[in-house]
Amino acid sequence: MNAIEPAVKNLHALSRSNFKEPRIGNYENTQEDNLFMPKEITNRIKIQSSRTKWGFNEEGCNSSVVAACLAIVAANVKSVIAERISDNYPQLEDEELYRYARLVTSAVIAKIHTIDWTAELLKMDTLRAGMQANWYGLLGKTYKDHFGHTGNSILSRFVGIRKPENDGVTYSLTEEFVSVYRMHSLLPDEILLRDIDSLQGRTSPLLSLNGMFIHAFFISIYIARYNQFRRNMLMRPIAKWEDLTNDKEAIAVLREVYGEDVESLDLLVGLMAEKKINGFAISETAFFIFLLMAPRRLKADRFFTSNFDEETYTKEGLKWVNTTESLKDVLGRHYPHMVDKWLNSTSAFSVWDSNPSPRNYIPIYLRIPR
């Protein structure tokens, strides 16, 4: 067993849970599911499916092509990290390598989520500056990379601070955060699948058959309905449908379902119907929760504060986290041919064939917001 084995085991565990292992023998083998995984991994794993050619069966699984692709990317990242750490720490056992690789990968995902994905979800200069400050502090990346954390949570923010700041509450994600973070409704109904060696493409449904049950299930477990949720947040509740949205078609549908009873409006429906701040993909209501939780998930987590060091991550692992700034960096590292051919935008979370953002030499905190 070598350094790549832990990632192989992890992906295989994922496949077993999704493909219902007792029935794997009845599934047909497919080659397409391997995508661009290295031969070291694909030689050890056969991803199999029933009635679909993308590795996820339509029975008992709410997964998608996107999830399969991201699982493969994560497996590649863990494998490379494990090999890099193994090269510098040959005494480590496979389980230790796996744990280090998983920790580093988790930190990379959290960083991408903070300074890359969120900046595209809430697309305005003020939020981009705010999310950069959430990770690097007001002194910015260059200062933090060269001189480390100042010990001040404003100048260097929370990542790398000496001890967690949990405001007297053990690290957790609140029920309110879970309620507003159900963003599957933002996904398109179909995605375009392309072959790297071909200009041809085909569309594929994003969710499997059981995905249709997600919406009804989620609506039933919210902690409050839309108006009460806003009151709990000290936000003004709506008095009529026109307070929620200017979309006449949406208002007509809301009246058909709820009549004039705005108090019965389900939270998820309200969040999706609510008129958005310019540049935002999510509602103002969801943003309020996000604004509270975005810094907390960093400052209250010991792996981003007191244990964000070489002893916990290893020197190579910590360097990997500190030198990865975006999902585009990750894709460029593992799939350079794909990035060169298709990913023209600055962020992988933007429209890939859009123009990249122009270079701006003015520090982000000194720019006039657009």
Rank of each mutant, 00 (worst) to 15 (best):
N355I: 12
I282H: 01
S179P: 06
S86V: 07
S204F: 05
V339S: 00
S347K: 05
R51C: 11
E256W: 09
K144F: 01
D33Y: 08
F304G: 00
V65C: 10
G332H: 04
G211Q: 02
T314C: 01
K123C: 04
F303W: 08
I4R: 09
Y313Q: 01
V257L: 11
S153H: 08
S306A: 13
P188M: 11
N34Q: 03
D243R: 11
E176T: 11
N278K: 11
F349D: 06
S350H: 10
L298T: 09
D189C: 11
E93V: 10
P90H: 02
Y226M: 01
Q132E: 14
V269Q: 03
A7Y: 04
S179F: 12
G130N: 12
G148E: 04
L366M: 12
K123Y: 05
F147G: 11
V262M: 00
V351W: 09
Y89I: 03
L92V: 01
K163P: 02
S208N: 15
E95Q: 11
T30D: 03
R194G: 00
R182A: 15
A68D: 12
N88R: 14
Y143A: 06
T324I: 07
L366Y: 15
F304P: 03
L138N: 04
C69M: 13
T305G: 05
F217C: 05
M183A: 13
E190G: 05
Y313R: 05
E21I: 11
L155Q: 14
M293V: 00
P358C: 10
K123F: 12
D145P: 00
Q48N: 15
A239W: 02
D243N: 11
F147S: 10
H146Y: 12
S49W: 06
V253C: 03
F290L: 09
H215L: 01
A300M: 02
R302P: 10
H146L: 14
V321A: 02
W241I: 01
K111T: 00
N62T: 12
G25Y: 04
S179V: 05
A107L: 06
N307K: 14
E28F: 13
L155P: 06
I109C: 02
N76T: 11
S220H: 03
N134H: 08
L209F: 09
F349M: 06
L127S: 10
L343G: 02
L292S: 07
A68Q: 15
A273I: 14
R359S: 12
S326H: 04
L291I: 02
N210K: 06
V339D: 01
D261H: 14
V269N: 02
E59P: 09
L122E: 07
D116G: 03
A71K: 09
S153Q: 14
A75W: 03
T114A: 06
A133V: 07
F304Y: 13
L366F: 14
E316D: 12
A348H: 06
E325G: 09
Y365W: 11
S64Q: 08
P188H: 07
L187P: 08
K144N: 03
F349A: 05
I362L: 10
K299L: 09
D353Y: 04
R51A: 08
V339I: 02
Y335L: 08
L271K: 11
K46N: 14
N88A: 15
A294Y: 00
N152Y: 06
W241N: 01
S350Q: 15
D247P: 07
Y27R: 03
T170S: 15
K9L: 09
S283G: 00
Y181N: 15
H334A: 02
L318P: 00
T312I: 10
